[in-house]
């Protein structure tokens, strides 16, 4: 197509083949601006998330909660907000938190929760007494199966190679059955499904989960019989934060990762929907003029 022909195109025609970089720019703005102004959007808590929240809320003081970090840096933006919200909740409930990872990539992410949530907001909590980082161990679902019967063979030290028996909170832990709740974050393999199959079902231990939005539909069938609750994607995190704010009003004006993620989500969705509608309007104008092209993925 020569430049001369380009000039003869009508505005509508040119808009139909709008430079995709313009769309990119809109998406970038839609994501960045809400982050910069720190906007938050409340999400009404759905029953499946509320169930998870209620379960944690119902734990008596000193209950043991195992948090398994079964995800990597690529899905961290989606998962981390729910981990933070849940850790915050567990800390409020004065539960003892045991952090571990079935994914090698989860190893470093446990540190992020400790440095990002526990140390600044709960300075009274003591490492080894109220929370502990057990780190990553290889073995995938085999690891889960193993620690269901024998915890300390696999975990003889914590993530910093300090002997496990030095920590008071590890005293009576011999198997996964000693935990009051296990929460797996991730939803990939190994993940929530394996925790249900190899720990929750055989050991009759309550399992909760937090997973990516993409993984959630595959896990819904396990609720409520095998999963006490499930947080799906950024929305799940925001819903959990909402429940947290209702129960603990002091967090009303607190920056919540999930809720601010939801603002970017909503704006970006609106931008994409706008472009789809816009494209169709252009298309119908052109069709009225009889200038359209067919074809879609070869399926007719």
């Amino acid at each position: 197509m020569t430049n001369g022909a380009m000039k003869k195109q009508s505005l509508v025609e040119r808009l139909q083949y709008i430079d995709r970089r313009i769309i990119f720019a809109f998406i970038a703005v839609a994501v960045i601006v809400p982050l910069l102004i720190g906007a938050q959007l409340k999400e009404k808590t759905t029953p499946i998330v509320q169930a998870m929240f209620d379960n944690v809320e119902g734990l008596p003081e000193g209950s043991r909660v195992l948090l398994s970090y079964d995800y990597g840096p690529t899905t961290a933006p989606e998962i981390q907000p729910m981990v933070d919200a849940m850790v915050r909740h567990c800390a409020e409930r004065k539960c003892k938190m045991y952090m571990m990872a079935v994914w090698a990539t989860g190893h470093n992410l446990t540190g992020e929760t400790i440095e990002g949530v526990l140390r600044p907001d709960f300075p009274d909590l003591e490492y080894g007494v109220d929370f502990i980082n057990l780190g990553y161990k290889a073995g995938n679902q085999g690891l889960i199966r193993l620690i269901l019967v024998d915890f300390k063979t696999m975990y003889s030290t914590d993530a910093n190679n300090i002997a496990i028996d030095d920590f008071p909170m590890m005293e009576n832990i011999t198997s996964l059955r000693n935990f009051d709740l296990i929460v797996s974050f991730g939803g990939g393999f190994p993940g929530i499904k394996e925790w249900i199959q190899f720990a929750g079902d055989p050991g009759n231990i309550p399992i909760g989960g937090g997973c990516t939005a993409v993984g959630a539909p595959n896990l819904y069938p396990y609720y409520p019989s095998q999963l006490v609750g499930l947080l799906g994607g950024a929305k799940g995190a925001a819903e959990y934060e909402n429940a947290l704010i209702i129960a603990y009003p002091k967090y009303e004006d607190y920056p919540m990762a999930g809720m601010s993620l939801m603002v970017s989500q909503t704006v970006a969705h609106i931008v994409i929907i706008f472009f789809i509608v816009f494209g169709n309007v252009l298309y119908f104008i052109l069709r009225a003029r009889g200038m359209t092209k067919e074809g879609l993925g070869g399926v007719r």
Binding site: L296, G297, G298, V299
Partner: peptide, 29 residues
Amino acid sequence: NAIGAIQIAGTDQVSQLPFFVVACDYTLI
């Protein structure tokens, strides 16, 4: 698509089919 190539895709991965269907000219499902 941006470089204007004709694209023929095919995969057995259910989760990726939507993207090929949307962005390619032909898709083997």
